[in-house]
């Protein structure tokens, strides 16, 4: 069987792309379910007669396993809509394997990147959205898609379910300290925009990775990135060699260990995350997404 390749160029990836892990959906409310492949996580929404799937997982095999998990949880209801949380292939790369006939909803900036990328298996957006907030009412289900500004990837949308008091936000705040090098995060306004989402009335937070979390963990995540940003600036001023993993890790552990050391992954990841953040201050941020008023992107 031909595998969709994303942007991989090596045939060596075929087994990786084809692998279908066992996935089982977990119900969060009457209509909302969550599913994970062990690392990435997403949600899907049960309508009266169909399903709205958020994201696709990061390989063709995982997309097929996701579809099977949906069919097992809500049998007989086809996936009529796929919402892309953002443009990255590891979350939204394989709609062609999940639901090739579905309507694809995403932010207009996401749509632009996907058109440019032309990755094998990532279907183009059929319904691009503009602006900060877009209410969606489909098949008996309601939710709000929010783009507060550049946070991670391009055209990132979070989904808010007011009735269920659930927030889904993929690859932004994590329920732990496992941020690694924070790939394609836009740090200039990241915490500010994420704290705007904290103004919403939610109790359950579903991140794009790891376990389902709650409001307190979400706030703790904002606090962690903010505190690490201060520590990284202090490291620079105190002439810590900011390009050395172990030096940055030790410095930031000493600064933040008492407050955040209990976060899962803190010891293993803080060095990488600190190197990423300190380079934000050294270099000034990356691109127009990382400037004080990134609305210029839409100008």
């Amino acid at each position: 069987m031909k595998q969709h390749m994303g942007i991989f160029t090596s045939d060596k990836l075929r087994d990786y792309l084809a692998f279908e892990p066992g996935m089982r959906a977990e119900q969060l409310s009457d209509r909302i379910w969550t599913v994970s492949d062990g690392l990435c996580r997403t949600i899907f929404l049960e309508g009266d007669n169909s399903v709205v799937a958020f994201d696709t997982f990061g390989t063709p095999g995982r997309a097929r396993a996701y579809r099977a998990a949906i069919e097992q949880a809500v049998p007989g209801k086809p996936i009529k809509m796929v919402v892309y949380s953002h443009d990255h292939l590891d979350h939204a790369g394989f709609a062609a394997d999940l639901a090739p006939e579905a309507e694809i909803v995403a932010d207009e900036m996401t749509a632009k990147i996907i058109d440019l990328r032309d990755a094998d298996g990532q279907l183009p957006v059929t319904r691009p959205l503009s602006g900060r907030e877009n209410p969606v009412n489909i098949d008996g289900a309601e939710f709000l898609l929010i783009n507060p500004g550049p946070t991670h990837g391009t055209g990132h949308l979070s989904a808010y379910f007011a009735t269920e008091k659930i927030l889904f936000s993929s690859d932004t705040i994590l329920p732990n300290a496992r941020y690694g090098f924070m790939p394609d995060y836009h740090l200039a306004n990241f915490v500010r925009f994420m704290r705007e989402l904290a103004d919403l009335d939610f109790q359950t937070f579903v991140p794009g990775r790891h376990q389902v979390s709650d409001r307190d963990q979400f706030i703790m995540g904002c606090d962690y990135i903010e505190a690490l940003s201060v520590a990284c600036q202090e490291a620079f001023v105190e002439m810590v060699p900011i390009w050395v993993h172990d030096a940055m890790a030790e410095y930031c552990k000493a600064k933040l260990g008492s407050r955040f050391g209990g976060l899962d992954g803190f010891d293993q990841h803080i060095g990488q995350t600190a190197i990423r953040i300190v380079h934000h201050y050294l270099m000034g941020g990356w691109g127009l997404e990382d400037t004080p008023e990134p609305a210029i992107l839409l100008a």
Binding site: G6, I7, F8, G58, D87, H88, L89, D90, G93, K112, I113, L116, R117, A119, Q122, G153, T154, G180, F181, P183, D184, H245, Q272, I275, G287, E289
Partner: peptide
Amino acid sequence: MNMVRYMQHFLTGGWGI
């Protein structure tokens, strides 16, 4: 670190325009 960045490139699909 070089390796991680390149792996992320292929996994995520490249960043921005």
